[in-house]
Amino acid sequence: MTQRKGKAARSSSGAWRAPWGWLAFVAAAACLPLTGNSYLMGVGIYALLFSILAMGLNIMTGFCGLLDLGYVGFYGIGAYAAAVFMNTHELSFWVALPLAAALGALWGTMLGAPTLRLTGDYFAIVTFGFSELVILITRNWTSVTKGARGFPDIHKPVLFGYEFVRFNPTAFYFLALALFSLTVFVMLRLESSRLGRAWFAIREDEIAAEACGINLRGYKTLGFAIAAAFGAMGGAFYASFSGTLHWSAFTFSESVLILCMVVMGGLGSIPGVVLGSCLLVMMQEGLRPQNLAAALAPLGVPASSIPGELRWIVYGALLILMMRWRPAGLWPQKNVAAEFAEEADSAP
């Protein structure tokens, strides 16, 4: 056991190395538009977007070990903030994006500071209630969010005079890839920084961490704010890409979906989280009744006989099974795996 701990400590404090794997991944992903299929690119954009969101959530749930059930609230705040900045205040997308992220961070701090002194369960519940309140406000604050009808005709990004196109979303795809790369870069730096190590210490043992002089509330709040900023950034991208916003895109089930991605890939593991997001987005497409029926066509299964709820049953089952048999995820972060193995060893 001591051996394992030693190894874990070394890997998390290791010097920064060029992330060849990531570069290869981004290079390969950059080839997707070559297929020229805009449906596939749309799916790719969602995979990248959800990877960004999942990496953000991963700061809280993976790095700090706190369950955030309302992450989608920040996503929604970012999306609506960007829409208001761009359409109502006529700001460019490139200004609205960082502004939205900053606003997300602000809300993260405001919500986190009073809540994070409580234990995990209460934190989970407060975040959940918060995201439901965000929905309620977007639905009823009609003068700003355009209310229940949804926010229509959101502006598109313009880069050097080129206006992005939604129907053939190559430009949006590369924008998503750029934001994704930025997120990965920041996450990798955070992971190996003093901040990241403080988070891991909090996750492993709060009391010991505090005894080592780590300011629990400060570090947790900072983590929450950074996570919220990435959520809001994802939201701003989504607003511009989809062109309309509707409150129903920010419900609790989205939070669960993002959580599912993090859990499946591996709590705390950056490559794992990206893997989880890509797999789940693909699954979401594959499990659509029509797509499934097309795949099962040789068996003669009609789409109408496939329940639309199927994918949610699969997600739920995944959560249960992963927690039971592979709590560290498909691609575990090394010290998380060690921790779970330890739990298993010490369990009676």
Partner: peptide, 28 residues
């Protein structure tokens, strides 16, 4: 090892790219 898995992941992505037809009726 993580690089190997990454390559696997890329392969997965690309394979959905090429293997699109069975998952969606659109390309067909």
């Amino acid at each position: 090892s993580s690089r190997t898995v990454l390559v696997f992941l890329v392969g997965l992505l690309v394979s959905t790219g090429c293997g699109g037809p069975p998952t969606g009726p659109a390309p067909d």
